[in-house]
Simulated assay, not measured.
Amino acid sequence: MTKRPPQQLFLWLWRGYLRRYWPIMSVALVFMVIEGSTAGLLSYMMKPMFDDVFVGGNADALVWVGAAVMAIFTMRAISGVVQKVLLKRVSEMSMGDLRQHMLEHFMRLDPSFHQEQGPGALIQRVEGDVSAIGKVWSTLITGAGRDVIALVSLFGVALAIDWRWTLVALVGVPLLVVPAMVLQRFVRGNAREARDIAARLSTRLNEVFLGIVPVKLNALE
């Protein structure tokens, strides 16, 4: 389950656990779009701020530009808080459902499975792996909502100001994307190794604390 690509993982989560919360997620996506669009609005306000206020010294422009920037920041703050609260609520509820289903599945397995798998490993699957999955889908939602809208709005503002230099700047996009993709694979592989180490650590701690009385009676600390 945890070895699936992020896109397949999100589709699996959507079919099994997230679909029932689509009304809350829809509202969160609306506020994501609002928050993302404020990046383009702020960049658009840089031109009158520098041309009319800093260079031109227009006192009237200072008032309306300042009020516009304040309104944009207020809208960005409110929309950011609302979408984070809603997504956190969906994350906790859906991950709680997933933990419950995993626990029910483990309890139905044969005793031989539990003899091979230590309790620490199973605890890590129910707690650590589910938390990691929750971070993956919330990151995908945030990237698909707020960050993409912000990128599109900034790109639109850049085209409106100078389309030639904007197209020239796009030449450097692969230099940013390719290293990020390579780093993502590296991090994903190390994350799996870290979860395995955490599972062994949980198993060891469980053995130590469950057997703490015999350990102390035999001075085996």
Results as ranks from 00 to 15, higher is better:
residue 214 P to Y: 02
residue 196 D to W: 12
residue 204 R to E: 12
residue 201 L to W: 06
residue 179 P to W: 01
residue 217 L to K: 08
residue 168 V to G: 04
residue 202 S to R: 08
residue 208 V to A: 11
residue 192 R to N: 05
residue 216 K to I: 09
residue 186 F to G: 08
residue 202 S to W: 01
residue 164 R to C: 03
residue 173 V to C: 04
residue 197 I to C: 07
residue 211 G to F: 00
residue 182 V to C: 09
residue 217 L to F: 04
residue 185 R to E: 11
residue 180 A to R: 14
residue 187 V to Y: 10
residue 164 R to M: 14
residue 208 V to N: 08
residue 215 V to R: 10
residue 164 R to N: 12
residue 183 L to Q: 13
residue 194 A to N: 06
residue 195 R to G: 03
residue 208 V to Y: 09
residue 214 P to Q: 00
residue 212 I to M: 10
residue 199 A to G: 09
residue 194 A to C: 01
residue 180 A to T: 10
residue 165 W to E: 14
residue 168 V to C: 04
residue 200 R to A: 15
residue 212 I to A: 09
residue 201 L to S: 11
residue 192 R to H: 13
residue 197 I to V: 15
residue 172 G to E: 08
residue 210 L to Y: 07
residue 216 K to H: 05
residue 209 F to S: 02
residue 198 A to I: 09
residue 178 V to S: 00
residue 205 L to S: 06
residue 213 V to H: 01
residue 218 N to G: 08
residue 171 V to N: 04
residue 167 L to P: 05
residue 162 D to I: 09
residue 181 M to P: 05
residue 202 S to H: 05
residue 181 M to A: 14
residue 202 S to F: 06
residue 168 V to F: 14
residue 217 L to N: 03
residue 216 K to D: 01
residue 201 L to M: 14
residue 208 V to D: 05
residue 202 S to V: 00
residue 209 F to P: 00
residue 190 N to T: 06
residue 207 E to A: 11
residue 218 N to D: 12
residue 215 V to P: 00
residue 192 R to L: 12
residue 170 L to N: 06
residue 197 I to Y: 11
residue 163 W to T: 14
residue 166 T to N: 08
residue 210 L to F: 09
residue 217 L to A: 07
residue 195 R to I: 07
residue 178 V to A: 01
residue 199 A to T: 10
residue 161 I to P: 02
residue 161 I to W: 12
residue 219 A to N: 13
residue 212 I to P: 00
residue 213 V to E: 15
residue 197 I to E: 14
residue 198 A to L: 11
residue 183 L to F: 14
residue 213 V to W: 03
residue 187 V to T: 07
residue 186 F to M: 09
residue 208 V to I: 15
residue 185 R to C: 04
residue 174 P to A: 10
residue 183 L to V: 12
residue 164 R to K: 15
residue 206 N to I: 05
residue 210 L to T: 14
residue 173 V to P: 01
residue 182 V to H: 05
residue 175 L to D: 00
residue 205 L to M: 10
